[in-house]
């Protein structure tokens, strides 16, 4: 498999099955490096299943099997000799609901680095990660407090900080803002634009507005008559053919966002 430097990850004839049921059928996409790629589509079409295939989180679902290939640096993630632990070390993930560990803010970030054999100065890493996640100023005086004391939006940014602390190449985000208020959502979206300078981001969202606002590329998923999901369109978000995406209002202020969010949430 030739490895074009332009792409962070690509799939070939990727299908995912739960027992006899095919949840995802024949997905072929190429995700560009240092860009934000959104996966959109109606509920139940397998967006999360596809996203979780990228860092082998589906391994924990019993009965789940994968056919086809996902390539990272020309290596098939589902190859026989590939270690899922290493895959996840390279491809981080932020989940739908903020899920910080029941530890201190500091430990939340330090833990992942420590288990992965981090050799540098931990304090620096914690500070840098929190700064990158735009959380440092809010928590710098209470690093030893429980992460549960933070607000939902702060917790989600902490989860992002903890993910970038282990310096992955790709960050997967599974509806990272769906449990958050509009203001926190905006901050996450701003953060994503910052992060794409260093990382490739793949985000699942059920909010088309969010996809239009925040992503460079969009994969649209649908289910066929056998209820198997598939990518029906994959393109530059700006060239996207879906009318309501093109007509998306320009967001310039938080008030706009709140309004837009109310009107267009799917």
């Amino acid at each position: 498999m030739e490895n074009n430097n332009q792409y962070a990850i690509e799939t070939q004839a990727l299908s995912i099955h739960y027992g006899n049921f095919t949840a995802i059928k024949n997905v072929n996409i190429k995700v560009e490096k240092q860009k934000i790629t959104a996966i959109i589509g109606p509920s139940g079409c397998g967006k999360s299943t596809l996203l979780r295939a990228f860092n082998r989180m589906n391994d924990f679902v019993s009965g789940c099997s994968v056919t086809g290939e996902i390539f990272l640096h020309g290596q098939n993630l589902y190859g026989k000799d590939v270690d899922p632990v290493e895959v996840r070390r390279k491809i981080g993930m932020v989940f739908q609901k903020p899920n910080p560990f029941p530890k201190s803010i500091y430990e939340n970030i330090a833990w992942g680095a420590r288990i992965n054999g981090f050799k540098g100065k931990m304090d620096e890493l914690v500070e840098n990660s929190l700064r990158h996640a735009a959380l440092w100023d809010e928590v710098k005086d209470k690093l030893q407090e429980s992460a549960y004391a933070l607000s939902g939006g702060q917790q989600q940014r902490l989860c992002i900080a903890r993910t970038i602390a282990i310096q992955p190449e790709i960050i997967l985000m599974d509806e990272p803002a769906s449990a958050l208020d509009p203001i926190s959502t905006l901050r996450i979206e701003e953060l994503m634009q910052e992060l794409k300078k260093n990382y490739t981001i793949i985000i699942v969202t059920h909010n088309m507005q969010q996809a239009a606002r925040a992503s460079d590329f969009t994969a649209m998923m649908m289910i066929d008559d056998q209820r198997a999901g598939g990518v029906i369109e994959f393109d530059d978000t700006k060239k996207y053919s879906l009318a309501h995406l093109i007509n998306a209002p320009k967001i310039t202020s938080q008030a706009d966002l709140v309004k837009a969010d109310k009107e267009h949430r799917l």
Partner: peptide
């Protein structure tokens, strides 16, 4: 899942 996703 959070822990696994960090390569634990």
């Amino acid at each position: 899942e959070a822990a696994f996703a960090m390569g634990a």
